[in-house]
């Protein structure tokens, strides 16, 4: 009988150590500029740079830990775990990004003043 490959549920000391070191480096690379930004009373580095910067580092660390700690790439056969992860990840992005998008627009367009103006003008309501 042929030996079928099954999911390897553990890595090696090397892969865990490498993942651990990379994670620490990524954490510090994200942390130090933010700490400098705070210590310089928001003078050093702009918000438009720092926000995408730390988010990118978080996603890089997600990738590192998925590969070295959760061994997502080592799965054999039909990669159901990977497929399930990718579809969930899409849902997560949809939920988070759409919520922020919709609620920002609500905040911008439905301020109490413009809402009451609208009600007075179009719905025949009076104060």
């Amino acid at each position: 009988m042929s030996q079928t490959q099954h999911t390897n549920t553990h890595g090696s000391v090397f892969s865990y150590t490498l993942g651990f070191l990379l994670s620490i480096i990524l954490t510090l690379v994200a942390y130090v500029p933010v700490a400098m930004h705070q210590n310089s009373f928001h003078q050093l580095f702009s918000h438009t740079f720092l926000i995408p910067f730390v988010l990118t580092l978080a996603f890089l660390q997600l990738t590192v830990q998925l590969l070295f700690f959760l061994h997502l790439g080592k799965e054999s056969g039909p990669r159901w775990n990977l497929v399930f992860f990718i579809s969930t990840f899409g849902l997560v992005l949809l939920v988070v990004v759409m919520s922020i998008w919709i609620m920002t627009h609500l905040n911008n367009n439905m301020t109490p003043q413009s809402m009451s103006d609208y009600l007075i003008r179009n719905e025949g309501m009076h104060r």
Binding site: T27, V34, A35, H37, Q38, H47, V54, A58, Q61, L62
Partner: peptide
């Protein structure tokens, strides 16, 4: 936790 660290604490320090 990485995302809590980034979105709650680091964003909190930036904004």
């Amino acid at each position: 936790w990485i995302f809590i660290f980034t979105i709650v604490y680091l964003f909190g320090g930036i904004l």
